Amino acid sequence: MLHIPVASSNLKSVAYDPSRGILEVLFKSGAVYQYYNVPTSVHDDLLGAESKGQHLAKFVKGKFPYRLMSPSS
């Protein structure tokens, strides 16, 4: 997946695989999370949000299954 850098105090980049509905988020801490069954609209809204971190917390965390892919360094 191709990561897109984002302007955020907490997130470094975001990647999305629309065919599998996987949203991957790289945090500035180095942690990488994958969220599953994420609709394209949720990804698009995240990229367009003024605050990426707040949007992620409100519309993604706790709403979709996830997995920690790489812990923070």
Results as ranks from 00 to 15, higher is better:
V14G: 04
A15Q: 04
Y33F: 15
L56A: 03
F27A: 10
Y33K: 12
L46E: 04
Y36E: 02
L68K: 13
V25K: 04
G53D: 13
V32L: 14
S72D: 11
F27L: 11
P5V: 05
Q54S: 13
A15W: 00
L23T: 09
F59Y: 15
V25I: 15
L46W: 01
P71A: 14
T40H: 03
K63D: 02
D17P: 02
S51N: 14
S8R: 05
I4D: 01
S29K: 08
Y16E: 00
I4F: 03
P39V: 00
Y36D: 00
Q34H: 12
Y66K: 15
G21N: 00
K58H: 10
S41K: 10
E50N: 12
V38P: 01
V6E: 04
L68I: 11
K63Y: 05
Y66I: 08
K61P: 03
S19Y: 06
D44P: 01
K63E: 09
M1F: 01
V42D: 00
L68T: 10
N10G: 08
M1T: 06
V25M: 04
D44H: 07
S8V: 09
Y66H: 15
A57G: 09
D17G: 03
T40L: 07
P65A: 10
P65C: 08
P18G: 00
F59C: 10
A49D: 00
G53Q: 09
Y36I: 00
N10Y: 09
L47G: 04
T40D: 02
K63V: 11
Y36W: 02
K63H: 13
A49L: 03
P5Y: 06
